[in-house]
């Protein structure tokens, strides 16, 4: 599997997608919609990271699903259909077990969506999106991202210099080592602050904060971005309309009741599936197109 095609879309498209699927997954506790979301999240995570995602989903997410589903009935005693009583006299109900499964599925879905989010919404995309709304905070954010590896590098340099005068963390007894470690950190911190002030002055000298300055962005809002964005907005609108009609949730307590399935619920399910599977579909289409146009000589 090569690169993920959806990741190359405009950050706004990526962000809207994850905001929508994450919000909907946390919101809708309807078995069909939850099934769609869990399935799509799992499939997308596998398209993104291949075998690693399969491992993550099976080793961590599957047991988590079972444990969480089993824990809920111990704390939740609402519901009409009493199955049996616990030793402490509290009842275990069918509703609480089913609800526990639904809640666990929701949590696992959100976790898997976040694992995809971490892959797709990289920090540079985040800065690009929020740089206009919160410029100072996004600047801090990007500086921190740069400083962390830089500080690690500098700690190496300081530590090597200290080693040459016998004051590294690998030299001396335990007390000496600890003291040397603290000294290295202290040198590091002083250097970091001095260096930071210099950077700030340099920024000021180049006109940081003056009006009329633009910033470089590698992202362009193309026609394909517009197409996908419009499609996503239509799908989100349909799903929200479904939410407004009460199609997307079900009642668990005191007794379970689901709204009757109509033609419209079918439309909502279709729209939701299409929305959740959008990146996978885009990937498939791209791959088919590539297969079709690649020259066979």
């Amino acid at each position: 599997m090569g690169r993920d095609s959806f990741s190359t879309y405009h950050p706004a498209v990526n962000f809207l997608y994850f905001a929508a699927v994450l919000g909907f997954s946390m919101f809708f506790m309807h078995p069909v919609l939850q099934g769609i979301a869990l399935f799509s999240a799992a499939v997308y995570s596998v398209t993104l990271s291949g075998g690693k995602a399969v491992k993550f989903n099976v080793i961590y997410m599957l047991p988590a699903l079972f444990i969480l589903a089993a824990v809920n009935p111990l704390f939740n005693h609402a519901g009409m259909t009493i199955l049996f009583y616990l030793k402490n006299g509290n009842p275990v109900t069918l509703e609480s077990i089913v609800y526990g499964i639904a809640a666990a599925a929701m949590l696992v879905t959100v976790m898997i969506w976040f694992s995809c989010y971490n892959k797709v919404m990289t920090s540079d995309k985040f800065i690009h999106l929020f740089g206009k709304i919160v410029p100072a905070l996004s600047l801090i954010f990007s500086m921190v991202l740069r400083f962390v590896p830089r500080f690690r590098h500098q700690i190496q340099a300081v530590s090597l210099a200290q080693r040459s005068i016998g004051r590294d963390v690998t030299q001396g007894n335990v007390v000496h080592r600890a003291r040397h470690g603290l000294r290295i950190l202290s040198i590091m911190a002083t250097w970091a602050m001095e260096n930071a002030i210099e950077t700030a002055d340099s920024m000021k000298a180049r006109g940081y904060g003056l009006p009329g300055r633009t910033s470089f962005a590698i992202y362009r809002f193309d026609r394909r971005d517009r197409t996908v964005l419009v499609l996503m907005i239509v799908l989100i609108a349909i799903v929200l309309a479904g939410a407004g009609m009460g199609e997307n949730t079900m009642r668990y307590f005191p007794s379970m009741r689901m709204k009757e399935q109509t033609l419209f619920s079918g439309v909502v399910y279709a729209a939701y599936s299409l929305l959740c599977m959008l990146p996978v579909i885009i990937q498939l289409v791209e791959e088919l197109r590539w297969k079709y146009i690649v020259s066979r000589t």
Binding site: A136, L139, I140, M143, V144, A196, D201
Partner: peptide, 8 residues
């Protein structure tokens, strides 16, 4: 800028 960078 100085304030930002100290926070960073």
């Amino acid at each position: 800028a100085r304030e930002l960078i100290i926070i960073a």
